[in-house]
């Protein structure tokens, strides 16, 4: 946790200065992520649907080799460019993806993207099509699932010039219902601009 805070802070400070030049200043991600927000997120993430889906995929796929993971990831990336998307379609149509999409929609723009990973870092469900199928090489997985049951990672806020908002990714380790065993990880990309607006409006 101290490492997490330190890293977040340094990243925030490093990126804050240049961003402010052309865009609104980057919001304080960590500060915006109040317990109430965390509670809301956990309210619909730490649920049976997520655990059941992750558990099911862990059971189904199990611990796989890097070769298999690379094959699946490459297939995913190939499908992104192709009209034929069996793996992507299958993943996006599963109940968890449908659920996450609905959660995203229900948030009225607060959550930009949600995806859940299994113990291999492979996607279990996602609200939209991600660039990769495997997140195991990224901080959102390495700093969460690999870090243990309490692993949490706030990625640095990014300016989305297309929709003119700040985005910030929150990732943390998913555990079983008892909260003891890590089963996977979840990443929730938050519209920090919207979060900030709500925080200001609510205050």
């Amino acid at each position: 946790m101290p490492r997490f805070q330190l890293t977040s802070l340094s990243v925030f400070l490093a990126l804050a200065a240049p961003a402010l030049a052309a865009e609104p200043p980057a919001p304080d991600f960590k500060a915006l992520l109040t317990p109430a927000v965390m509670q809301d997120i956990r309210g619909w993430i730490d649920t049976d649907i997520v655990r059941v889906s992750v558990g099911a995929q862990n059971d189904r796929i199990g611990k796989v080799s890097q070769t298999d993971i690379d094959r699946l990831d490459n297939q995913w990336k190939a499908e992104r460019e192709s009209a034929d998307k069996p793996l992507i379609a299958a993943t996006l149509s599963n109940p968890l993806s449908v659920y996450l999409a609905r959660m995203q929609g229900r948030s009225l723009g607060l959550y930009a993207e949600i995806f859940v990973m299994d113990q291999n870092g492979l996607n279990v469900g996602q609200s939209s099509i991600t660039s990769d199928f495997w997140q195991g090489d990224e901080g959102k997985f390495q700093k969460t699932f690999d870090a243990g049951r309490d692993g949490m990672f706030l990625d640095e806020a990014e300016w989305d010039d297309e929709v003119k908002v700040w985005r910030g990714q929150l990732s943390y380790t998913l555990t079983d219902a008892a909260g003891t065993t890590p089963i996977g990880a979840v990443t929730v990309e938050i519209n920090l601009t919207e979060l900030q607006r709500r925080a200001e409006a609510g205050s």
Partner: peptide
């Protein structure tokens, strides 16, 4: 509606 997908996801467990 909140648990509809869970109901469906239960199918994933097999």
């Amino acid at each position: 509606p909140m648990t509809v997908d869970l109901a469906r996801a239960m199918e994933l467990t097999g």
